[in-house]
Simulated assay, not measured.
Amino acid sequence: MDATINGEPRVTATDAALDLIADIRRDYPQILFHQSGGCCDGSSPMCYPADDFMIGDHDVKLGEIGGVPVYISGSQFEAWKHTQLIIDVVPGRGGMFSLDNGREKRFLTRSRLFGGGEACALPG
């Protein structure tokens, strides 16, 4: 799986998200994101200490934001493979187990469909 489609990353982050990632990394230098599949915290991107989350055999690495890997389950990737994920930050409480919880800001996934030449470059 390519981390880019015609040069466009599968996952990117806003400046606000990169700032929050840097803040979290001061307390937890090694972190990762896993795009939630809609359980307890909806479809929030969950941020974990890297050694506290086990990547599954079917998880797909979308790329990195701010030097932090971002994963998604294989089944959810199949549904979203035509979409660029944009990790952003909004006011509020983070997911119960996510490291953004308690910082009065939370990560949020926005998205856009790959279009034109990008979509043509997607594997079947």
Rank of each mutant, 00 (worst) to 15 (best):
residue 101 N to W: 09
residue 1 M to S: 14
residue 118 E to F: 08
residue 64 E to R: 12
residue 100 D to W: 07
residue 34 H to P: 00
residue 69 P to G: 12
residue 115 G to H: 04
residue 122 L to A: 09
residue 86 I to N: 07
residue 49 P to Q: 04
residue 94 G to V: 11
residue 49 P to T: 03
residue 111 S to K: 05
residue 124 G to E: 15
residue 62 L to P: 03
residue 77 F to T: 00
residue 58 H to G: 00
residue 55 I to A: 07
residue 113 L to T: 08
residue 5 I to E: 03
residue 93 R to H: 12
residue 75 S to C: 01
residue 66 G to C: 05
residue 3 A to C: 01
residue 103 R to N: 08
residue 35 Q to F: 04
residue 112 R to S: 10
residue 9 P to C: 09
residue 32 L to S: 10
residue 74 G to F: 05
residue 37 G to E: 13
residue 33 F to R: 05
residue 4 T to V: 12
residue 7 G to S: 11
residue 75 S to K: 08
residue 51 D to F: 02
residue 120 C to I: 14
residue 96 M to S: 01
residue 55 I to G: 06
residue 43 S to F: 15
residue 12 T to G: 06
residue 124 G to V: 13
residue 26 R to W: 00
residue 96 M to Q: 01
residue 46 M to E: 02
residue 114 F to Q: 08
residue 11 V to I: 11
residue 56 G to W: 05
residue 85 L to V: 06
residue 80 W to N: 07
residue 36 S to H: 04
residue 104 E to Q: 15
residue 54 M to K: 15
residue 5 I to D: 04
residue 110 R to W: 04
residue 34 H to C: 08
residue 110 R to D: 05
residue 84 Q to P: 00
residue 117 G to S: 15
residue 41 D to S: 13
residue 14 T to A: 12
residue 18 L to V: 09
residue 50 A to R: 13
residue 64 E to F: 07
residue 16 A to K: 12
residue 81 K to V: 00
residue 113 L to W: 06
residue 45 P to Q: 08
residue 102 G to R: 12
residue 106 R to G: 06
residue 23 D to A: 10
residue 23 D to P: 00
residue 25 R to Y: 02
residue 14 T to P: 07
residue 28 Y to W: 12
residue 116 G to K: 07
residue 107 F to Q: 07
